[in-house]
Structure formats: structure tokens, C-alpha cells
Nucleic acid binder design. Structure first.
Length: 651
RNA sequence: GCCAUCUUAGCUCAGCUGGUAGAGCAACUGAUUCGUAAUUAGUAGGUCGCAGGUUCGACUCCCGUAGAUGGCUCCA
């Protein structure tokens, strides 16, 4: 007999060779019906795979993340079976589960697949699912595996097999489809009740853009039809938050083919919003000892040769600006740091002067690949809330920690509570693409890890994600569709001070090299605002809202009174509109609600008589009437609350 | 840059297998003077992204190109 330990520490005895499914049945039929996958000693395990030794067991249902990904992994296999029916000879790359479903990379050998084909494939998947074919696990030798895929003519699987040097090789078969797969899988295909193929994309084999491009088919499945319907509704809802849609509706920004792809233009309302954010950060930075500077939008080619950017990105940048002077070339600035280094060089510094913190909302231009451009999140011209801190080596950690505070201040102020802090380090072994000494890299990486740890920041470490000149700490936030974007960033750089020969005089009266920290709490104004729009679905907090109040006269007879009210508010620095249209009040309210204006003031005969306003709050409704003075007090208190939070943190 | 899809009035979208375009909202003009999410009548508005080709004839088919969208690769 073997001893099986359950999560609640209960122990039961079974015959060796018992399967997790049988164990579940021994507890209750209901449990057995619900579970989809097991974990044996922490390892995911097929429900019908025998257990032969004393073990711990966890029985997971489809709601569990592991259960879900198992369902989707099995679904990828089922889609592959369906594809083989419609496209005989199709070759398969990899077919893993992802956050929302699964994909399979396939080589259709010159044949094409379009979204029009989805319906028939989906129908076939459901048809196959109903046969309730079991997913059968089989251990095979490497020779047998190679032989199988050689006969099948699937070079991608053979390529994968090449790298499988240790451990057991397993095949999984359901119906007429056999795949090289570590597993595990759901017991049989009947679990899959609803399927939706989402889209088609090209994907390079093994992520190599020099290599062959396969067709990637994305899909998602559920164990209930209802879950699919709910998922699709959720997607529709997410699309309503899309910053590109809201940006147009709320008149925040626009693009023009004539101006150029990826070059956003801020409309008056968008600018108001952006300006508030900039003021907010400027204020915080002033308190933290930053000095604001401004630098030109272009720089001489020599500047970027010195910085190293010319060599690294020269070919893939906007090309140089020529002048009447033979041989003279300028580049649009892709970063602000070289300019700031030259500002630092403009005077000598003592160790007592450091850190020097130079801040600039600097607009930079980068020639991003055309296929990469996306709304405000990936553009070719954008403004960084940039600053460069020049400090002594002994100040790096403390400065770094202060920047973490500033980034957290920004994220908290805008209520981004769900973010990932990612430490991006060099590739673990291949250091060929980085510049700077090994010693400095080690120092910089250490400084970041320690600073983050001391700030109690929960971080994930990613190798091969560092910038070419140094490691960084990035703050990532998800957009409405679940894609992760980098917002705030902090980067340690020992390299540029070297290249620009930056110095300070130490207490020993010798010249020393300062260390540089690049940092941008918002990252770029464009991307930050894109994420902010999606985060609050266009319902901006009062202090940021482009229009804070709209005054609606009941009829034309009260327009003069409405104007008086609006004037008082404007004089109190409240961004106020007035709707003078000859429309019924219901219509004006509806339009104001759609425009997501935080406060609606309705004025008619009663208000005029009493000198009051009738207050309505966006998406909440009627709040009753109050005197104008009281309203101003209340609204100012609400606006100031964020700013005073800020004061508290900084004091 | 690569793969796929899309581009029709200011906006959102119809337009079957080729016979030179249609709705709602917005805009404009008038009526209405109104109490918490759409008052009403009328008017105007498009070389169907751009440039070629096939055809008696192209919004519709083909080629190219620009832009957008979803991915891949990239991201100082």
C-alpha cells in the first residue's frame, strides 16, 4: 500500500498504481467530476497516470490556473488534430497555453488559412471533442521519437527533439493525433465544450526573425458554453476602455497620416490632462532637490558618437539632418542623457555638490518599426519625464531608493495598484551586446537589487532584458487587453560618465568619476496617459479631468445666471464649461455624462432665486442643491486631497 | 521589418455573386423655453485611403502603396 497525503494533511492508503482520478472517486463522485488535473509531489500529473509511491496530492479543477492552462494545452492538441484533417501534411511547431487560451504554430506548406476558415475548424474541434477520445501518455525512446517525426516529415518537432537531452521523452495521443509533449493533459477531449479561434499571426520559428515564419493560430476553449459567452462579453467591455477609442471620444489626442505614423498630437483637452501630470511631478521633483533644465530637440552627430548611440542605433534611427555646411550632421534626439551630460560638463563639481539632479520633460524621436506602432503606447515621438542624477558611487543606493519612492508616489497617486517591478539584468552568459566594464555591471546590478530589497519592493528578475549600457528596474502595468507595458524606469549607468569623461573633485582633491542614474517615473507621457485612460476608463480623477464642471441652464432664460456661476468657478481655478444649447435638460445631462465631466451643475428658476446650484456627480446622479460657495469648498477639497497626499509623502 | 485583417460622410457602420453609394448620430436652418441620460421639422454633407491594372462598366476583382488593428521580431 502507498500513503497519499492530501493538502489538509489527511493521509489515506491506496494500492500502488492507483490514479488520481480513482483517488478522487474514492472521496466523492462529485469531486471526480470536477477535477481536471492533479499535482503529485508538486508535479502536474495526468488524472489517469498511475501513482506508485508515497506522495502528496492536490486535485485541481478547471478554475485553478493550472487546470486552465492544462485545458488550453490539451485544446491546442485538439486544434492540431482538426487542422491535420483540413490541411494534410501540415507541420507543427509549438502549441502552448497562454494567459488567455492557447496557440499553435503551424507550417501549412504554402497553403493559407484565413479567419473565414475558423468556423469550420471550430466545428471540427467540437465534433472531435464529442468523441471523448482520451489523451494517452506514452514514454518513448529518443530514437523512436526521431523515427516517428522523420516519417511524418515534421522538421520542427525534430528540431525540438535535438535539444531534448535529458529526462524522459513522452508522446501524447488523442484520436488520430500524436504529439511530442511533456504533458500533462486533461483525461479526454469531452471536457472541451466551447471553442473560439481568435486570430492568426505570423510568428518566427524559435523567435528568430532570420528564420522561417510560421502561422500562429490563437484560440480559447471552455468547459461550458456560458463561459465562452462571458469571456467574449468581457473582451467587448475591455475594448470600451481602449485608450485609442476613448482618446478620440474625449478629444484628448489625434494622429494624422500627413504628419506621420506614430506622431501623436495632443488636443486641448489632452494637453490639460498632461499638463496637470507634469505640474504634479515638477512639484514633487522640486521638493526632492531636482533642477529643471531644457535642451534642444537635435544634437550633433558627434554627441551620439560619444554616447555610443550612433553606433548602436544610427542605422535604425530617423536619418541625420544635413546643413549647408559640408559634412555637418545633426540627429533628432532619441534620448536626453547626452545633452544632460554636456550640461554637467559645463562647470566643475566638488563632491559636496553631488548629487546633481537634472530633470527635463524632453521630447525624443525614435524610428520604431512600423509594425510596432500602437496608439499612444508605442510611438515615434514622445516626451519622457526624464532626469539624470549624477552622484558619487557611495550615493547610488540611497539615490536609487529615493527614486523608487518617487515612482511609488506617482503610481499611488494615480491608483495603479497592480504593477510588476521588474529588475532587468544582463544575459547570464552572453555579454557581447553590452558596453561598459564587467566590474561596473556587477556593481550596478548589485546596487539595484539591494535598493529594491531595502525598499521592500516585490520584484521579478529578468535576464537578458537590460539596456545595452546598464541594468534597470522597470515598473510594468497591464492595459485593457492584458498586455504589459513599461511605465516608470530607473537605470544605473557607469558607462556614459566614462564616455563623456565626467568628473568631480573628491575630498582627496583628486578627480573622480560620478555615477549616473537615468529615471522616468511616468516613463513617457504618451504611454503613461494611455494606460491611465484605460485604467480609469476615461473617468479621470477630478484633479486631472480636462473639464471639471459643466453648468447646465434649464432653459435659455437662465443662461445669464449660468454664466455668472461659471465665471465664479473659473475665477476659483476650476475648469468649467457651460452648455448654452437650446436643448432640454435631459439631453444636456446625457451629453455631459457621455463626456465624463465629473460635476454637472443644473441651474434654473429655483437656483437663481436662492443663489444655489443643483449638483449632479458623473455616473452617480443627483446630489441635491447647495450654495455655490459650499460647492467650491467641496470641490477644492477634493482636488487638493491628492496634492496633499503628495505633500505628506514628501515631508 | 515580417504574417494576417481592415480603410465608405465629422463619428459609428450598411452596401449580396462588378451596373458610378445609404442609415443613425453630429453639423446647419427653423419651431420649441423645457427640472436630472436623446424635443421636433427641414437642409447640406462622400472623386468609397492613395496610385495603377482587368473590364463596355470597379466601392466591389488584381497589383502596388500609405495608414490602422492583432500577433512575431525589436524597443536607447
Amino acid at each position: 500500500m502507498i500513503q497519499i497525503t492530501f493538502p489538509d494533511k489527511n493521509i489515506r492508503s491506496y494500492e500502488p498504481g492507483i490514479t488520481p482520478l480513482q483517488i478522487a472517486k474514492s472521496i466523492s463522485e462529485g469531486l471526480a467530476r470536477n477535477i481536471i488535473i492533479a499535482k503529485i509531489n508538486g508535479e502536474t500529473w495526468d488524472l489517469n497516470r498511475p501513482v506508485n509511491a508515497d506522495s502528496t496530492i492536490e486535485l485541481l479543477n478547471v478554475e485553478h490556473p493550472t487546470g486552465k492552462s492544462t485545458l488550453w494545452h490539451s485544446s491546442a492538441h485538439l486544434m492540431a488534430e482538426a487542422l491535420e484533417i483540413f490541411y494534410p501534411g501540415v507541420k507543427f511547431g509549438i502549441g502552448p497555453p497562454v494567459d488567455n487560451g492557447f496557440y499553435y504554430d503551424v507550417d501549412l506548406g504554402g497553403k493559407q488559412i484565413t479567419p473565414d476558415d475558423f468556423k469550420k475548424i471550430e466545428d471540427k474541434i467540437i465534433e472531435l471533442a464529442r468523441t471523448a477520445n482520451a489523451y494517452v501518455r506514452r514514454e518513448v525512446s529518443k530514437e523512436e521519437a526521431i523515427d516517428f517525426f522523420t516519417r511524418k516529415g515534421d522538421e520542427y518537432k525534430l528540431d525540438l527533439l535535438k535539444d531534448l537531452t535529458d529526462g524522459t521523452i513522452t508522446f501524447y495521443t488523442q484520436g488520430n493525433f500524436t504529439d511530442l509533449c511533456r504533458g500533462p493533459h486533461i483525461p479526454d477531449t469531452s471536457w472541451i465544450k466551447a471553442v473560439k479561434l481568435m486570430n492568426i499571426a505570423g510568428a518566427y520559428w524559435r523567435g528568430d526573425d532570420k528564420g522561417k515564419q510560421l502561422t500562429r493560430i490563437y484560440g480559447i476553449t471552455f468547459t461550458k458554453q456560458k463561459d465562452l459567452t462571458e469571456y467574449l462579453t468581457l473582451l467587448e467591455e475591455a475594448k470600451k476602455r481602449d485608450h485609442r477609442k476613448l482618446g478620440k471620444e474625449l478629444e484628448l489626442f489625434t494622429f494624422s497620416e500627413k504628419v506621420g505614423a506614430g506622431l501623436p498630437m495632443w488636443l486641448p483637452k489632452g494637453w490639460l490632462l498632461r499638463d496637470q501630470l507634469e505640474q504634479f511631478l515638477r512639484k514633487a521633483q522640486r521638493k526632492m532637490g531636482y533642477q529643471q533644465v531644457a535642451t534642444p530637440h537635435i544634437g550633433n552627430k558627434e554627441l551620439y558618437i560619444t554616447s555610443g548611440h550612433y553606433e548602436k542605433y544610427g542605422k535604425d534611427s530617423f536619418q541625420s539632418i544635413k546643413t549647408p555646411q559640408e559634412g555637418e550632421e545633426f540627429f533628432l534626439k532619441p534620448m536626453n542623457c547626452p545633452h544632460h551630460c554636456e550640461i554637467y560638463r559645463s562647470r566643475p563639481y566638488s563632491y559636496k555638490d553631488l548629487p546633481v539632479r537634472l530633470a527635463e520633460f524632453g521630447t525624443v524621436y525614435r524610428y520604431e518599426q512600423s509594425g510596432e506602432l500602437s496608439g499612444l503606447t508605442r510611438v515615434r515621438g514622445f516626451t519622457q519625464d526624464d532626469a539624470h542624477l549624477f552622484c558619487r558611487p557611495d550615493q547610488v543606493k540611497e539615490e536609487f531608493m529615493k527614486v523608487i519612492d518617487l515612482v511609488m508616489l506617482v503610481l499611488n497617486a494615480l491608483e495603479f495598484n497592480e504593477f510588476t517591478a521588474q529588475i532587468s539584468l544582463r544575459h547570464q552568459t552572453d555579454h557581447s551586446k553590452y558596453i561598459g566594464s564587467d566590474e561596473n555591471w556587477v556593481k550596478a546590478e548589485q546596487a539595484i537589487i539591494e535598493a529594491a530589497a531595502e525598499k521592500g519592493l516585490k520584484t521579478v528578475i529578468e535576464y537578458d532584458e537590460a539596456a545595452f549600457y546598464g541594468p534597470k528596474l522597470d515598473f510594468m502595468v497591464k492595459d485593457a487587453l492584458g498586455r504589459k507595458w513599461q511605465l516608470g524606469t530607473i537605470q544605473v549607468d557607469y558607462n556614459l560618465p566614462e564616455r563623456f569623461d565626467l568628473e568631480y573633485t573628491g575630498s582627496d582633491n583628486q578627480k573622480h568619476r560620478p555615477v549616473m542614474i537615468h529615471r522616468a517615473p511616468f516613463g513617457s507621457m504618451e504611454r503613461f496617459i494611455a494606460l491611465l485612460i484605460e485604467h480609469c476608463a476615461g473617468n479621470f480623477p477630478l484633479w486631472l479631468s480636462p473639464n471639471q464642471v459643466i453648468v447646465l441652464p434649464i432653459s435659455e432664460n437662465y443662461v445669464d445666471f449660468a454664466k455668472k456661476v461659471a465665471n465664479v468657478l473659473t475665477n476659483a481655478d476650476i475648469r468649467t464649461l457651460i452648455d448654452e444649447r437650446d436643448e432640454k435638460i435631459g439631453r444636456k445631462i446625457r451629453d455631459a455624462e457621455i463626456r465624463k465631466i465629473p460635476y454637472i451643475l443644473i441651474v434654473g428658476d429655483k437656483e437663481q432665486q436662492e443663489g444655489t446650484v443643483s449638483v449632479r456627480k458623473h455616473s452617480e446622479g443627483d446630489k441635491g442643491s447647495m450654495s455655490l460657495d459650499d460647492f467650491i469648498k467641496a470641490i477644492n477639497a477634493e482636488i487638493q486631497s491628492k496634492i496633499s497626499d503628495l505633500q505628506t509623502v514628501l515631508d
